[in-house]
Computed example of a mutant assay.
Amino acid sequence: MIPVHFSHERSPAERGLVLGASLRPDIERTYASYASLFTAHGVSHTQAREWGEHALAETRAWAPKLAREINGIAVGAGLDPWQLGALNARTEILAATGEGECSTSVGAGATGPHTIQTWDWHDTLRHVMLLCAITLRPGFAVCTFTEFGIVGKIGVNSAGLGVHFSVLRHDSDHADIGVPVHVVARRILDEAYTVDEATEIARSARLSASSVFTIVTGDEIRGLELSPAGVAELPPRQRTAPDTRCESLATISLDVAEGRLDVHEGGPRQVSPETWQSLSAKEIAWPTSATTPTG
Rank of each mutant, 00 (worst) to 15 (best):
A205K: 11
T294A: 15
V75A: 13
A57C: 13
W276H: 13
P235M: 02
T135W: 10
S210T: 03
E233V: 07
L226I: 14
I70D: 06
R60E: 12
W276E: 13
D196S: 10
A185S: 12
E200R: 11
E92R: 02
I215M: 03
T97N: 11
A209M: 10
K282W: 00
T288W: 09
G20K: 00
L131P: 09
V151Q: 07
W286H: 12
P242M: 09
A21E: 12
G295V: 15
A192Y: 00
I284Y: 05
L234C: 14
H5T: 12
A57D: 06
H164R: 15
T91G: 10
T292M: 13
E50A: 13
G107D: 15
L249T: 06
S158V: 01
T146W: 03
G72R: 05
T46F: 14
S158T: 02
G107Y: 11
Q270S: 14
R187E: 13
S280L: 03
S172H: 06
N157A: 03
A108N: 14
D190C: 02
G218M: 08
E274M: 10
A63M: 08
R29C: 06
G218I: 09
A285V: 00
A205F: 13
A57K: 06
G52E: 00
G160K: 00
T135N: 13
T124D: 06
S289R: 09
R260E: 15
V216C: 03
V4S: 04
T146A: 01
V184L: 12
T288R: 14
E191I: 09
E101S: 14
I201H: 07
A209R: 01
H170M: 02
V212Q: 10
I201T: 03
A63C: 05
A198R: 02
G42F: 05
E258N: 11
G78D: 04
R15K: 06
S22T: 11
W121G: 00
P81H: 02
E247L: 14
R15M: 11
F140T: 05
V128M: 04
A61Q: 14
H127E: 11
G76I: 01
T46C: 12
V18E: 03
F145N: 08
G109P: 10
R137H: 15
A67F: 13
S289Y: 05
A89V: 10
S33F: 10
R186I: 01
G98L: 00
P273G: 05
A141V: 04
W51C: 09
W286K: 10
E99M: 09
T244F: 07
V43S: 09
R60V: 15
E28M: 08
V128E: 03
A63R: 03
T118W: 09
S289D: 11
V179T: 04
R24K: 05
L207C: 14
T104E: 05
F140G: 11
A77P: 00
A133R: 07
L130E: 02
I27W: 06
E28H: 13
E9I: 15
I2M: 03
V167R: 10
F38I: 08
I284M: 04
A86R: 03
R239Q: 14
T199V: 11
G139P: 08
L168M: 13
A175V: 00
L87H: 02
G162V: 02
E14Q: 12
R186E: 04
S211P: 06
R187T: 08
I116L: 04
G109A: 15
A202P: 06
G223M: 05
P25Y: 12
A159Q: 09
L37Q: 05
R260N: 11
I2Q: 01
